[in-house]
Nucleic acid binder design. Sequence first.
DNA 1: GACGAAATGTAGCACAGGCTACACTTGCAC
DNA 2: GTGCAAGTGTAGCCTGTGCTACATTTCGTC
Lengths: 137, 137
Amino acid sequence: MTPTKKQPNRHTRVRSDHARELAEDYVEAIADQIAAAGACRAVDLAALFSVSHVTVNRTMGRLQRDGFVTTEPYGPIELTPAGRRLAKTSRRRHEIVHQFLIALGVSEAVADVDSEGIEHHVSPETLAAMKAFVAAQ
Amino acid sequence: MTPTKKQPNRHTRVRSDHARELAEDYVEAIADQIAAAGACRAVDLAALFSVSHVTVNRTMGRLQRDGFVTTEPYGPIELTPAGRRLAKTSRRRHEIVHQFLIALGVSEAVADVDSEGIEHHVSPETLAAMKAFVAAQ
DNA sequence: GACGAAATGTAGCACAGGCTACACTTGCAC
DNA sequence: GTGCAAGTGTAGCCTGTGCTACATTTCGTC
């Protein structure tokens, strides 16, 4: 079986990028936490995402490996410049999607939930269209 | 998370449901394939999703366990009534999201890709708003 | 009806992302 | 400066989703 001969497979992009989504959610949360409390600890993320601190710990290992965060044993979680960049663009996209859903007429509560899921799948072109729609309100 | 309040765990929903997304993608593809070719074989799905036939095979095992498909060794893949229902609602949602993106002014190519990712995160309320927007065009 | 190609199945590996249970550090109260 | 609670780290387990390599079955062709 040769699975990858097929070229412009749109499914290929849809699949696979769960790791990126997770990274985006985490760096966004880390940036928030640092902004709100001055520092981000693993417990904060564990509480926010409703996962165990062990899961957070290992996720931090991957994010560190991928160059988004830095940590030292028993120390707080910091963002690298790349992490800050990712947090910023992710956050901005998130906000636009959220505003867009509100502008569409969706309730605040639903917009909160849906924007979380949708933001990771919005291409620059779609984001621009959403932004234009919000601006035209 | 600027656009939101700290509800206990909107993240919980966002997370975790990758299995459901995969199931939706698969049953949709299976329904398509059956409609197009009269039957769906594992190779068809492997080619479509650009994965190996082994991955398809095991995914079918899970979908069978979860009651969405039936298969017999070396036989074609069939949908259960639950699988057909899921395929139908998934397909419908997918189409609405796609039409909506087009109506928003997004190009066909980008709408194809983005609707694939977005469809799984659209709640009924948001879907209704999208549908209304398309209808109001 | 035998053959070979295509399809499917099986074994075994890897990694992500989830968990519990338990060990160890840190830091604050006292 | 000790002790205890909170926070982290480590060990080890599970499932899902991907793979390669190899075995087996089906099926059309002859």
